[in-house]
Every structure is written in C-alpha cells, then in structure tokens.
Design a protein around this nucleic acid. Structure first.
Lengths: 243, 243
DNA sequence: TTAAAAAGTTTAACTATGCTAAACAAAAAG
DNA sequence: CTTTTTGTTTAGCATAGTTAAACTTTTTAA
C-alpha cells in the first residue's frame, strides 16, 4: 500500500484548520506540518482551489465550513420558532372557520402535534399537543408526503373504512394534493373527522411543519372542505428566518 | 502557483464521498476521477488513513462524518424517542407521589414542555405541553443549567418574591443542584408551586431532557420536597439508544 | 519617512513521489 | 468449480512535488 504524501499532508493541514481557533498563518502551518513554507503555500492554495478553505484579507487561511447537509432535519430551535410564528395563523383560522387548527412536524414516520387552537363550539376535534399520528391517513401527514421529504411508509394500517391503504391510490392522492396546494383527510383516521392542511416552509424552502384545520363531518361537506382548504392555503404566515 | 494534483484529486474524492447517497465502489471512484483504479485505491486508502473515510465490510468507501460538532442539540427523532421512553417514569411518579410530572427539553434559553401526566387531585399544577418557561426559576430549567450545556441567561426576570435574580446566588444554587443530584424550584416561578427535577441523558451522556414533579406548596414542605427529589432521582428510565 | 525584518509567493531544478500498466488476489456470479 | 468482476499490490518510468533560493509584499522599527 502506498499512502500519498501530498494528500496526507493536505488532509493534515485541513485538520489543523478545522481545529484551529482562528485563521492560521502560512508560517504556522509550515511549522506544524514540518515542511518548507513554499510547500505549505502550495498545499493551502490547493485547499482553497478545491473549496475547502478560504484566505482572508490578511492572507491567513480558514477552513470553509462543510456545506453537505448542515444537519438532517430541523433543530428544536427552528421548530419552536416556527411554532411561535404560526400561532397567529392558527388563531385567525379558528376565528374565521370556527373549527380547531393544528400544527405538526415530521418525526421519522409520524407527525408530531406541537401546537393547537381549540374550536369554541361544543362538538370539536382535539388532537392533543404532544401526540403522534401516522402519515398516510391524516391531512398533516399527507402534507409532508406531498410537499416535504417524508417517504411513504410500507405499513399502512387501516383505521376506518375510508383509510387509503393501497400504495397506488395513495400516490395518486398525493399527486392530487400537490396540484391542489393543500391536503385533505376525509374520515381516514377517525370516523366523523375531516381535515384540510398545508405545508409551512422555512427560509431555505424546506418544509418544516404542516398546518391544518379539522372539524366534525356533520359541519363539513365537500364544498366546505374545499373552502377550508383554500382558507388554510391562503392564511398569511410570517416568514421563518434562516438559521 | 502550483496546485498539487494528488491533493486536488483526494479532495475531489472526498467531495464525491460526501455527496454520494451510499457507499462508493473503488471502480466508480476511479471512473469519476478519471484515473486508474490503482491510483484511486491509493487515494482512498490515504483518506482512510487520515480518518476522512472508512471502508465497510463489502470494501466500499464511506465519508467519515466530520466529528467536530456532530450537530448541535438533539434531533426531533431523538427527542420523541426520549419522550416515549420517559412516559412510564412520568406515570409511575404520578402514581407514587400523587403530584403531576413533566418532561421538557432545552430550546435556546428556555425549556419546552413536551409531555406531562396530570395529578388526580383537585388542586394541581398544570404546565401545558407545548409551553415554554425560563431557565433560572424553574426546576426543569435549573436541571439544564446544572447538568446540561445551557448557559446562564443575562436577563433574569423576577416572577415572584422568591425568584433568584442574582447571578452569584444562582451559581451557588446550581452548584448545590449538582451535588444534590436534582434541582428544585421553591415558588420561584409561580407562587404556591414547588417542584423537583432531574436530568435525562442520552446514550452519549449528553443531557437531553429534564423530568420533574411539581405540586402545590400546601402539600409540599421542605421534607416532602427533598423526598420528591429523591423519588425523581431514583425513578428508572429505559436508556435511550444512540442515534 | 525610510530602512530592516518578517511573511508570503513565485520560480527553478532535481529526485522522490505518484502515476500507469500489468500482475496478483479475492469476491461474486454463473 | 469456473468465469467474471472487483480490489490490492508490485514495478518502473515520468512527472508532480519537494526543497532551496530569488523575489514581492506587508509589517515593524528606527
């Protein structure tokens, strides 16, 4: 086995840049690597040319933060910020529709309810905050399937006669959701409950949450469900600042 | 300026590994770089030797995730797993003590309540799930200050006459908390409420959540508070698997 | 301001390094 | 078991990478 000297040294230089407090001088680097400064210069220039480092205005070198995936998913901080920014939207939806509104985020293969505003009517839906629901039979879950990067679960449990358990049928439903701009749940998770939901995006255009309105079927016929969908879709949300 | 060929190629190989879906075969890499496979082999071996990649059992290469900060904080998935694993502890504490139990995670400068089990008694504490509270005057927050990596907030608002707003006094309180093994809140956030809390750690030994029991002061004298603290500290929690 | 020193870049030239090619070894497929 | 594919090692030559020295630029000192 033949280890490549210049590559080994270059990677070592990268290590040094990563673990350094601040910017690193050429001479320091040459000393640290135990090579001539001309050589260190070539190494560092190569790191810069490959996008692994940058040279600041005082000619010192800094490691370029790896872009790859800044971390998969959203941080707790982003999620809470989103929750707080979506609150007014939830409240105004409840005011306008009389039905309750929910906010949820994607966690692996389920949605996690992180906020809600209750309906004031005596007959009402109540998914408690902190509860988790499946993706394939809830409006919030379908929003993640249609607009987020959730993957269709293999297992699709049946909760009601209306639950869509066929993969192809669900794919078609998701395609419809995309073109419509909002997702619906027509008594697919719990009998007597209908729901319409939309995606909420972060500053990078990544879906971070789903926001929905749900109520009892007795108050929500097809026309009303479409109306709720449009209202949910149109409700203004303060843009979430990039992290 | 002289750019180093083998270093440039090595960094390009790293890029390919980082952006690849799964593990990369030697031959693919050689093709992608436009070099002989023997050369690609040397490059990859060098990346491995420098700790930038690893070779799996089927001899394919994967980029080693940059260790530095594996990502700050916990993922939603870890948090929900923790919540579900802590549920039995919350329930058993409520059964044993008659008071209510809460679970919270750290979000920036506040704690976020993500689960609770209510007391069955008519006079009870109720921090709703989804709400956020400050660190310096709650038992859950103090647990993060003492056992987690929360930093002491500059602004320490006064909520009750007992709220500790002096930095030195709070530091002393945190030191006491560390040696005691659990934190307490003696009517520092809301009059008439006392609370005892403990940290919950993940597989890496990082604090992920705080778990506490709280009740009305009329039922909780100093001796009872110490007793609750010991109960909270001793309650068994299923270890959280590493991510 | 000027001179001296230090830090960084470029050039030149030699040889050790890192390529290609080919042989060898080890898995995987048939 | 044989064949094919994939990965590793070896050999040897050409060149990429090293050192050393010249040259620039920036910083420090006078």
């Amino acid at each position: 086995m033949r280890l490549l000297q210049s590559l080994t040294r270059g990677l070592r230089a990268l290590d040094i840049l990563y673990s350094a407090e601040g910017p690193v001088r050429l001479t320091e680097m040459a000393d640290a690597l135990g090579v001539e400064k001309s050589n260190a210069s070539h190494i560092l220039k190569t790191l810069v040319a490959s996008g692994y480092a940058v040279q600041d205005d005082s000619r010192r070198y800094v490691a370029e933060p790896r872009k790859e995936e800044p971390c998969q998913g959203h941080s707790l901080s982003e999620v809470v910020t989103c929750k707080e920014l979506c609150r007014p939207a939830l409240e105004s939806l409840v005011r306008e529709t009389g039905e309750c509104a929910h906010l949820a985020v994607l966690v692996d293969t389920r949605v996690w309810y992180i906020d809600k505003v209750d309906s004031t009517l005596p007959l009402k839906v109540d998914h408690p905050i902190g509860s988790l629901s499946p993706l394939h039979c809830t409006a919030l879950g379908k929003a993640f399937l249609a607009f987020g990067d959730a993957t269709l679960p293999e297992e699709k449990a049946r909760y009601t006669p209306k639950t869509i358990t066929d993969t192809d049928a669900l794919m078609a439903e998701i395609a419809r959701t995309r073109s419509r701009g909002f997702s619906v749940d027509d008594e697919e998770f719990a009998p007597g409950i209908r729901c319409a939901a939309r995606p909420v995006f972060d500053a990078r255009g990544q879906m971070i949450a789903a926001l929905g309105v749900s109520g009892p079927s007795v108050r929500i016929d097809d026309a009303r469900l479409a109306e709720l969908g449009e209202l949910v879709r149109a409700v203004p949300i303060t843009p979430i600042q990039g992290a």
